[in-house]
Structures are given as C-alpha cells and as structure tokens.
Design a protein around this nucleic acid. Structure first.
Length: 204
DNA sequence: CTCTGGATTGAC
DNA sequence: TCAATCCAGAGG
C-alpha cells in the first residue's frame, strides 16, 4: 500500500488511483482477490456522502484513519465496501463498485451461490462474480466485521497497481468518468470512475 | 419509542 | 417492476 499517501491525496484522485489496485482477503475458507475496475468518490460537503451530516455510529470509521475500511449494510441485505481516504477527522471515502476476479474464483462462486435463497446452484460467469458493490462483498467475504479494519499488514490487503501482478498501465487510457449510481442528491457530480476496457463493470 | 428509506440485487 | 430484509437516523 506504499504508493498510496492517503492524507495528502484528494479523495477524487484516490478514486482514480485505486483503479488497477488489487483487493485481497484471506479467510479460513480460502483466499480471494480481485482487481479494482470501478470506484466512486464520496466527499466532505457532499450531500450523498454518509459523513456529510456529521459523525455517527454507522459512519464513525469514515472519520478514522485513512487506509482503513468503511463497511456498512445497505437495503437490509447487502454490504458496501469503502476505502477511507482523507486525514483522520474528515469523513471521505472511495466506494469499491467492481472487481475483476483474480484468486479464489471457485470460492467466489460458492459464496455467491450460498447467499441465494434458491437451492439450485447457478453457474456464474467470471465477469459477473464481482460486478457490483454488493456482489463483490458477497464474493470476497466482506461484511461489517471488517468495518474500521486496516488495509495494511492484515488478512485484508490493498496492493497498489504497480505492486499488483499483471497490471498494464495502458488500461488507464480507457478510463471513463460518470455520475454516481443509485443516489438522489448530488446526482450530477462526476465522481464515478471505471476502466472502460473491463467486462466486469456494474452499469454502463 | 415509531417510522422511513437507502451508495442493491435478482426474480417476475 | 418490485420484493427481500435490516437498522441508522430523524422525529415525537
């Protein structure tokens, strides 16, 4: 995570720099990892940001040290995973919206299947295992127990693009900037970023 | 306390 | 188009 100097990096730029980075999670079930291909920035003074109305029990980790996780439950059933960015005391973060699976693809399929109510197993194409913020949390085994967790020196790791195997920096030429998904306020702010050459994006 | 709605997903 | 399913946050 050495490449990321969170306190000195504006969150909007951090959201772009996270494209190509690899998120890796070790659990007793096994190891899963994936390359980040879609992000959204959530800023101070941003009405769509959970932290915009001050510190509360839910968003406390957003105000904590950068380089940690902010994980919360949405719609009563899905988790969303964020990387905390701004210095301690300022509530900003980057939502991770999609990954390209790298390690533990069978475990991802198993988790996606066991999460479903239906008994019949479905065969997931690799591209759809982590193509959304809720999906990637299921596939990677991420939940609220990781809220506030450090992304360095732990079972949860974030490898910068340069340190991640198989990264081709030319992919950044396909970078697309759009408005964020699923929010009502500040709906026209261009704070969503994705690699247009990826087939794992949540929404085109 | 009660009530409302959400940074989603997948089935209908 | 809509239900599933929980809980933070707001209001009384």
């Amino acid at each position: 995570m050495s490449e990321f100097n969170w306190p000195n990096m504006p969150t909007k730029r951090a959201a772009r720099m996270l494209l190509g980075a690899v998120l890796r999670h070790e659990t007793p079930e096994g190891i899963c990892s994936g390359r980040i291909v879609e992000t959204e920035a959530y800023l101070r003074n941003d009405p769509a940001c959970h932290a915009s109305r001050g510190k509360t029990a839910r968003n406390a980790s957003m105000f904590g040290p950068p380089g940690h996780a902010y994980v919360y439950l949405i719609y009563g059933m899905h988790h969303c995973f964020n990387v905390v960015t701004a210095p301690t005391g300022i509530g900003e973060a980057v939502l991770i919206r999609a990954l390209e699976p790298l390690e533990g693809i069978d475990l991802m399929r198993k988790r996606r299947n066991s999460w479903r109510r239906q008994s019949a197993t479905k065969h997931w194409r690799e591209q759809e295992l982590c193509s959304g913020p809720g999906k990637l949390c299921i596939a990677m085994g991420l939940d609220k127990s990781l809220d506030g967790f450090s992304l360095a020196n732990s079972s949860l790791q974030l490898l910068p693009p340069k340190e991640a195997p198989g990264w081709n920096p030319r992919r950044l030429r396909s970078l697309v900037t759009t408005t964020r998904i699923g929010i009502r306020e500040a709906a026209d702010w261009p704070l969503r970023f994705y690699l247009g050459d990826s087939d794992c994006i949540s929404v085109r």
